[in-house]
């Protein structure tokens, strides 16, 4: 059981995490955050293995991973 938390205010919606995730569990949302970007979100938290590749790739250190 793993869990990731994406800081929606920090996220700049670059999408690098979406291609880094081996399970393709991340996608960008439609809603706009305080910075004016569309932040990433996890579509299926249950399938997350906590590999932390999304967090490693995130240039804004907006992802925290728990395992």
């Amino acid at each position: 059981m793993a869990k990731i938390i994406i800081d929606e205010i920090r996220c700049k919606g670059c999408g690098l995490c979406t291609v880094a995730c081996p399970g393709k569990l991340l996608s960008l949302t439609e809603k706009i955050n305080l910075q004016g970007y569309t932040p990433a979100t996890i579509t299926c938290q249950d399938k997350c293995t906590g590999c932390a590749l999304c967090a490693e790739m995130c240039p804004d250190v907006a992802i925290t991973v728990f395992k």
């Binding site: 920090r10 700049k12 999408g15 910075q35 995130c58 240039p59 804004d60």
Partner: peptide, 11 residues
Amino acid sequence: QTHFCPGCHHG
């Protein structure tokens, strides 16, 4: 928060 553009590798 950094001032870098989205997708910039500086961060």
